[in-house]
């Protein structure tokens, strides 16, 4: 009796193991035979995408609202009232933005507003802390998110020193104008974190980010690793600062003061 039960269990175990191996093997061969993948011919490529913002040109709530509207419309970002809101790009004053109170500042700078967005840091803490790689760093420097994989633990929000991330506390579609959705882009679901994606979906088809397009030249976007690029040219010609450089995250967004 004991002997046969032992053998039965062994057999059952082996069968289960076999089934696992078989199903794992099956998952590898999915796409049609002879298929291949590649880029769009129009794709914009870079080694390190970066953005330079001329705050002399976009330095008011109104001008920044134009950028935010373009961004939020392109990505179906809901407009939620209250403190559980979601924003990819928004305006803030000098002290809020740069964490360095300066007394007796020049009046223009004191009243200026600054567009804030995800910095797509080189050493991004959000990428470091994400337990599922739902936030990950692409080879071109963009800190991207896979909303399919996010479990909503919000560790990335605690990790981000720039407050760039928003959590979908509720169903975002309740706060979207469903008639005016961008049908080329998804919405998000309740329970995941989201943030600016440097318009990776537009770069893939040769278009500049939505905010850059709406900025009439105040925002410059390009490859930081290419000395001949537009961003490098602007950086050479102007005094720029980045947010919280002391933290060593190496932000990819520069501000012309």
């Amino acid at each position: 009796m004991n002997h046969t039960r032992r053998n039965f269990l062994k057999f059952a175990g082996l069968t289960a193991a076999g089934l696992c191996v078989a199903s794992a093997g099956g998952a590898l061969a999915v796409s049609g035979a002879g298929s291949a993948i590649r880029d769009d011919e129009k794709v914009l490529k870079a080694k390190r995408w970066a953005m330079v913002i001329d705050t002399k040109k976009v330095g008011t709530k109104e001008t920044i609202a134009v950028l935010a509207k373009a961004c939020h419309a392109a990505h179906n970002v809901p407009d939620i009232p209250g403190k559980q809101n979601i924003k990819w790009l928004w305006a803030a004053g000098f002290e809020e933005a740069f964490d360095q109170p300066n007394n007796y500042m020049d009046e223009g700078l004191e009243k200026r507003e600054f567009p804030l967005l995800c910095n797509h840091c080189t050493n991004a803490p959000c990428v470091r802390v994400c337990p599922t790689q739902a936030t990950y760093k692409r080879a071109d420097g963009i800190v991207a998110m896979d909303y399919h994989r996010c479990i909503g633990c919000r560790y990335c929000m605690a990790g981000c020193p720039f407050g760039a991330r928003s959590f979908n506390f509720m169903e975002p579609r309740l706060h979207l104008d469903l008639a005016a959705l961008n049908k080329e882009f998804p919405t998000r679901m309740r329970g995941v974190v989201e943030k600016c994606n440097f318009c990776v979906e537009r770069l893939a088809h040769g278009k500049q980010p939505a905010c850059v397009e709406a900025s009439q030249g105040a925002l410059v976007f390009g490859d930081l690793s290419d000395p001949a690029s537009e961003v490098r040219k602007v950086l050479r010609e102007h005094y720029t600062i980045r947010r919280k450089p002391a933290l060593g995250t190496e932000p990819g967004v520069y501000y012309i003061i």
Partner: peptide, 20 residues
């Protein structure tokens, strides 16, 4: 197929699929 497409497009940045 959709599962693979998602990973290729989103994570690998390869957005075009050439079929057999």
């Amino acid at each position: 197929l959709l599962d693979q497409w998602r990973d290729w497009a989103l994570r690998d940045g390869q957005r075009m699929y050439v079929n057999s």
